[in-house]
Design a protein around this nucleic acid. Structure first.
Length: 938
RNA sequence: AGGCGCGUAGCUCAGUGGGAGAGCGCUACCUUGACACGGUAGAGGUCAAGGGUUCGAUACCCUUCGUGCCUACCA
C-alpha cells in the first residue's frame, strides 16, 4: 500500500469512525479480562453547540477510555445530554414569539410537544458533534435526562426524599428572573459590578421636625419598607430608636429599629428595611418581626401593594417616578455614583429580583455531611487536590437547595393539592389557592376576570381545566397539604374530589445529580449498574463542581449508598491565547469543528491533551495545533520510510535479549520501554500533557532522529548481517508506538496500523501488553556514540564546515570497552557523523591542525589539513573551558564546605564528587589542547 | 473582605530541596535516497522583588508588587 506525500486527515477520519461504530468497538468488550472502567459524560445542554470546553472535556475522556481499552479493561463511556429546562424553554419560546404566539396561548401540553419536536429536529446535535473529534462513546447507551427511565429515577428520588422529610416547601426570598419567570437557585445567579447610583432620601419623623436620611440604590422598593434601621451603638441616631417615621409616598408609619447589621460608615448609617425585596432585610425583618410587604410581582412590575399610583409600573419606570415624586416633595436629598454588584440570570442576563415566594427545597445538611466525609475518607479523590478545599468550603456553607422552577419543560413535581379538603387549621384549601391569569377570562355573564382564588373562580362558573389552563401564576400557600406519590392520583385520596397538580418542574440539576446511576438503569437493578457503578472517574470543569459534582456525590451516597465515582478530574477552562475567557460577545470564540477542519482531529486532540497541565487554565493557540499537525506529518513520513522495507519484514517478534540485534535496535527497545512506562504512569495520574510530551519526544527525537538514522547504513546494505533484525525491530517499535499514541491520535494511528502493519484487526481491539525490560548497559553505550556524533556535529556547525565535506575523526578512547564499541559500530558512526575515515584507540594522537571535542571517556580530533581556523577554534575551546571552570568553582566551593560534606546525603556528595572529577579531567584535556593550538598550530 | 492560583527563554508553558527544560519564534548552515510540515548546530533566563528556614532555595515559609479566578458583601 502506498502512502500519499503528506497526511490528509479529512480522507480517513470519517471512514474510521464509521467503521469503529459499525463494528461495535465503542461498546464494552464483554471478553475483556481487565476490570470494568466507566465514565459518564457530563451531559451538555441539549440546546448547546460544541465549544472548546466540551472538546477538551471529551478529548480527555476519550484518551482515558481508549487507553483503558488498550490495557484490557471493559470500558463504558456513556454519552448523553440534559434537558436544560430554562434554556430550552427560552429557545422554543423565542420560536413561538416569531409566530406571534406564546406558551400560555398554546397551552402546557401543546407547548411541551413543541419542545419535544424542537429537540427531535435540533436538540442534542452537540453530543454527536463529538464524533468529529473521535469520541469513542457507546452510543447505544446514550441517555437524555427526560427519558422515561431517568424520569422514573427522578420520581423515585423525589418521593423518597419527600417521605423522609428531606424535601419541603417554604416561603422565602428567592432569586427570581422576571423574564424567565421562574425561581433560580443561588448558583444560577451571576454577579456583575454595575455602575449605579446611591440615592439619599429623607424620611420625616412623626414630630414633623426631624427627618432621617436613608441611602439606597433601589428607591422603588421603599414602597415596601416596613422599618428604618440604625446601628444600636451609633451615637448620632441613638435617640431616634423606637421612634416612628412617616414613610414618604405611602404615609405608612414605620418604626426605627436598632440592628447590628447596619454599617454606620456606609451611606448615612441609616438603612431602609424592605423585608420582601432584599435578602439582608429579610433576615432583619425576621429578627424584628416586621411585616413583609410585597410590592413587586413575578413579572417585575409593581403590585397593588405599592399603591395605586405605582401599581402595574415596571420596576425601573417606577424607580423614576418615585424619584420624581420625591423631588417634588423635596425629600430627595441627593444622589451619587455608586458601583455595586448586581445579580443576573445566568441564562438570560436579566437583573434578578429577590421575591418572596413559596418554593420546594431539599434539606441538604445531612446529605452534605456525608458527601464531605466521603471525600475526607478518600473514597473520592478530587484531582488536582487543590480543589478539595474549594469543595469543603462550599459544602460547609451550603444552603438548602431550591429545586422548583416555574417553567414547563422539565420533570414535573409529583405533588397534588385538593381544593376541597381543609388545612390543618380548618381552612378550605380552595380559598387559599390563588390564580392569576395570563389574560382576562370572560365569564358566562360577560364579565372579564383576571385573578382569584380557586374557590371564587369555581363559583364564578369556571371549570378546573379553564382555571388551570389560563393561569400564569398559581400561588399555593404553605398550609395547603401536598399529596405526593409514586403514582399519579386521579382523585383526592381523602375526599375523592378533583386534585390540582403542582404547576412547577424541577431544577435540571436535580436530574443531573442522579446521572451516574440513573443512566445505568436505576431504580432498576441492572447488570450495567452492577458492573459499572461506582463509575471510575468523572472528568469535568471546575465551573460545575458545586452545581453538579457535589450534588451527584450527595445523591449517589443517599440512593446507591456508594460514591458515584472514584476520581474526579477537574480540568481547566479553555481561554484564548491572551488568557481571556472565550465568549460570543467578545468574539474570541474558537470553534473546535473549524480547528478539526483545518488541522485534523488528531492534531487538535493532541494539542488539547498537551495543553491540559493540571491546575492551570488552557490558553489555546492555533500555532500549537499547527505544530502538532507537523508532528503527525513526521509520523506519516516515518511510515513511508518503513514501507520501503516492508517486503523484508519477517514479522518475527523481537526482544532486547536477541543476540543478533545491533546496538541501535537494542537501544530503541530500551527507550521504548522507558517511554511506555512513562506514558502509562502519567495517564494513571491524569497528567495528560506529560503523557503527550513523552510520546512526542520519543517518537520524534529518539525514534526518528536517532534510530531511523542509525538504521540506514544497515538497511541500505542488503548484505548486512543485522538488516533483518533492524527491520523487525523497526516494525515492532512502530507497532508499540502506534498503540501508545492511539489514545491521543486515534485516526492516524488506525490508518497506519492498517496500511503499514497490515493488521487484520483494528488498533482499537488490540492490547498493549507488558513492557520490555530496560537495558541500561546499551543505553550507556549508545550515550558514548551520541556524545561523539554530537561533538563532531558541533565542530562542524561552529566552524562552519559544510555538511557535504566528509571528515576524518581520530578518537582517543580511555577504555577498551569504548574502543570496542566504536570499532563494532564504525559504519554507523561514520554515517551519523558524516566521516569518511575513523581512527580509534587509546594511543591516538592529535594531528596538527585538528579541531577538538572532549567528551567523557574520549577525545575526538578532527584533522583539517591546514584549513583549521585557529582563532575560532581557540575561542570555541576557551568558551567551553570557561563553562567548565565556572562549574568547577561551584562544585569546589561545595566540596570544601564542611557543612555540606557532613549534612548532605552521601549519594549527593558522591555524585558531586564524580562530577567534579570528570570536570577536572575535561578541563585538563581542553587545557592541553589549547596549549597545542596556541603553540604548534599558530 | 475572605479564599485559591499564577508570575521561569522573545511568545506559550512544563518542572524540581543538589547550578534550569520543551514547543513555537530567532540566527547560521544544509534540497544527505521518509519528511523543508524537514535536518544539524547555535544564541537566549539574577526562575517577579525582598527577607527567612537550610550545608544548599527557582522550588519550602513570610512580606511586597503585579495578575487571574472563586465565594461573600455592597442599604
Amino acid at each position: 500500500m502506498e502512502l500519499k506525500k503528506s497526511y490528509s486527515p479529512e480522507e480517513i477520519e470519517d471512514k474510521w469512525y464509521d467503521a469503529w461504530e459499525r463494528n461495535g468497538y465503542f461498546k464494552p468488550d464483554q471478553d475483556a479480562e481487565g476490570s470494568p472502567f466507566c465514565i459518564v459524560i457530563p451531559p451538555p445542554n441539549v440546546t448547546g453547540s460544541l465549544h472548546m470546553g466540551h472538546a477538551l472535556n471529551a478529548t480527555l475522556q476519550d484518551v482515558l477510555s481508549r487507553w483503558k481499552r488498550l490495557r484490557g479493561h471493559k470500558v463504558l463511556w456513556l454519552p448523553g445530554t440534559d434537558h436544560a429546562g430554562i434554556a430550552t424553554q427560552n429557545v422554543v419560546e423565542r420560536e413561538l414569539a416569531k409566530e406571534g404566539l406564546d406558551r400560555h396561548r398554546l397551552g402546557r401540553e401543546e407547548f411541551i410537544e413543541r419542545v419535544w419536536k424542537w429537540k427531535a429536529d435540533y436538540g442534542g446535535r452537540i453530543i454527536h458533534q463529538l464524533k468529529k473529534i473521535g469520541a469513542s462513546c457507546d452510543w447505544s447507551h446514550e441517555r437524555f435526562t427526560l427519558d422515561d427511565g431517568l424520569s422514573q429515577a427522578v420520581r423515585e428520588v423525589f418521593v423518597r426524599l419527600f417521605e423522609e422529610g428531606l424535601i419541603y416547601r417554604d416561603n422565602r426570598l428567592i432569586n427570581w428572573c422576571p423574564r424567565c419567570h421562574t425561581a433560580l437557585s443561588d448558583l444560577e445567579v451571576e454577579y456583575e459590578d454595575l455602575e449605579g447610583k446611591l440615592y439619599y432620601i429623607k424620611y420625616p419623623l412623626e414630630d414633623g421636625v426631624h427627618y432621617l436620611t436613608v441611602a439606597t440604590t433601589r428607591p422603588e422598593t421603599m414602597l415596601g419598607d416596613t422599618a428604618v434601621a440604625v446601628h444600636p451603638d451609633d451615637e448620632r441616631y441613638r435617640r431616634f430608636i423606637n421612634k416612628v417615621v412617616q414613610l414618604p409616598l405611602t404615609g405608612r408609619r414605620i418604626p426605627v429599629i436598632a440592628d447590628t447589621m447596619v454599617d454606620p460608615t456606609f451611606g448615612t448609617g441609616i438603612v431602609k428595611v424592605t423585608p420582601a425585596h432584599d435578602f439582608n432585610d429579610e433576615a432583619t425583618g425576621k429578627r424584628h418581626n416586621l411585616p413583609f410587604i410585597n410590592v413587586i410581582t413575578e413579572d417585575g412590575s409593581m403590585s397593588p401593594e405599592a399603591g395605586e399610583r405605582y401599581n402595574g409600573l415596571d420596576r425601573y419606570a417606577c424607580r423614576k417616578k418615585v424619584l420624581d415624586d420625591l423631588k417634588e416633595l423635596d425629600l430627595l436629598e441627593g444622589e451619587k455614583k455608586h458601583s455595586h454588584s448586581v445579580g443576573h440570570c445566568y441564562r438570560c442576563k436579566t437583573i434578578i429580583e429577590p421575591l418572596l415566594t413559596i418554593q420546594w427545597y431539599v434539606r441538604v445538611e445531612t446529605l452534605a455531611t456525608e458527601a464531605v466525609a466521603a471525600v475526607k475518607r478518600k473514597e473520592i479523590n478530587i484531582i488536582p487536590d487543590s480543589w478539595e478545599n474549594n469543595y469543603f468550603a462550599w459544602m460547609r456553607d451550603i444552603k438548602d437547595w431550591c429545586i422548583s422552577r416555574q417553567i414547563w419543560w422539565g420533570h414535573r413535581i409529583p405533588v397534588w393539592y385538593c381544593p376541597d379538603c381543609r388545612t390543618d387549621d380548618g381552612i378550605l384549601q380552595g380559598d387559599l389557592i390563588e390564580h392569576i391569569f395570563f389574560e382576562p377570562v370572560k365569564l358566562s355573564d360577560g364579565a372579564m376576570i383576571q385573578s382569584g382564588t380557586y374557590s371564587e373562580l369555581r363559583r364564578l362558573g369556571l371549570s378546573k381545566e379553564e382555571i388551570i389552563n389560563n393561569s400564569k401564576v398559581i400561588r399555593i400557600p404553605k398550609s395547603v397539604i401536598p399529596v405526593c406519590g409514586r403514582e399519579d392520583p386521579k382523585v383526592c385520596p381523602n375526599c375523592g374530589g378533583d386534585v390540582i397538580r403542582d404547576p412547577d418542574v424541577l431544577d435540571t440539576w436535580f436530574s443531573s445529580a442522579l446521572w451516574p446511576f440513573s443512566t445505568l438503569g436505576w431504580p432498576g437493578k441492572t447488570d450495567d449498574l452492577q458492573t459499572f457503578y461506582p463509575t471510575s472517574v468523572l472528568v469535568t470543569g471546575f465551573d460545575i463542581l458545586f452545581f453538579w459534582v457535589a450534588r451527584m456525590i450527595m445523591m449517589g451516597l443517599k440512593f446507591m449508598e456508594e460514591v458515584p465515582f472514584r476520581d474526579v478530574y477537574i480540568h481547566a477552562l479553555v481561554r484564548d491565547a491572551k488568557g481571556q475567557k472565550m465568549s460570543k460577545s467578545k468574539g474570541n470564540v474558537i470553534d473546535p469543528l473549524v480547528m478539526i477542519d483545518k488541522y485534523g482531529a488528531d492534531a487538535f486532540r493532541f494539542s488539547l491533551a498537551a495543553f491540559a497541565a493540571q491546575g492551570r487554565d488552557v490558553r489555546f493557540s492555533e500555532e500549537r495545533v499547527e505544530g502538532y499537525r507537523h508532528f503527525i506529518n513526521k509520523i506519516w513520513n516515518a511510515s513511508k520510510f518503513m514501507l520501503m522495507y516492508k517486503g523484508s519484514w519477517t514479522r518475527l517478534p523481537v526482544s532486547p535479549a536477541d543476540v543478533g540485534l545491533d546496538l541501535g535496535s537494542k537501544w530503541v527497545l530500551s527507550r521504548l520501554s522507558a517511554a511506555a512506562e512513562e506514558v502509562h504512569r502519567n495517564l494513571e495520574i491524569y497528567r495528560f500533557n506529560d503523557a503527550a510530551n513523552t510520546i512526542y519526544q520519543f517518537l520524534w527525537h529518539e525514534f526518528c532522529d536517532w534510530y531511523l538514522e542509525m538504521s540506514k547504513p544497515l538497511l541500505y546494505n542488503e548484505e548486512s548481517a543485522g538488516r533483518t533484525g533492524v527491520i523487525n525491530c523497526l516494525y515492532f517499535v512502530f507497532e508499540k508506538m502506534l498503540q501508545l499514541l492511539h489514545p491521543l491520535m486515534p485516526f492516524v494511528t488506525e490508518e497506519l496500523w492498517n496500511t503499514v502493519l497490515d493488521k487484520d484487526y483494528s488498533i482499537m481491539t488490540s492490547r498493549y501488553g507488558g513492557d520490555l525490560p530496560r537495558d541500561f548497559d546499551t543505553e550507556q553505550k549508545m550515550g558514548y556514540l551520541i556524545d561523539a556524533v554530537t561533538g563532531i556535529r558541533n565542530i562542524r556547525g561552529e566552524l562552519n564546515i559544510s555538511p557535504s565535506v566528509e571528515l576524518r575523526a581520530d578518537i582517543r578512547t580511555a577504555s577498551g570497552d569504548v574502543e570496542a564499541l566504536f570499532r563494532e559500530n564504525s559504519e554507523i558512526f561514520k554515517k551519523m557523523a558524516r566521516c569518511k575515515e575513523v581512527n580509534i584507540g587509546p594511543g591516538i594522537k592529535r594531528l596538527k591542525g585538528s579541531a577538538v571535542s572532549i567528551k567523557n571517556g574520549m577525545e575526538i580530533y578532527i584533522p583539517m589539513e591546514g584549513l583549521l581556523d585557529v582563532a575560532s577554534e581557540v575561542s570555541r575551546l576557551e568558551k567551553e573551558i570557561a563553562k567548565v571552570e565556572s562549574s568547577l568553582a561551584f562544585l569546589n566551593k561545595k566540596l570544601q564546605n564542611d557543612d555540606f560534606m557532613s549534612n548532605a546525603p552521601r549519594e549527593v556528595v558522591e555524585k558531586e564528587r564524580i562530577k567534579f572529577d570528570d570536570l577536572v579531567k575535561k578541563e585538563q584535556k581542553i587545557e592541553e589542547n589549547l596549549k597545542l593550538l596556541r603553540s604548534i598550530d599558530r
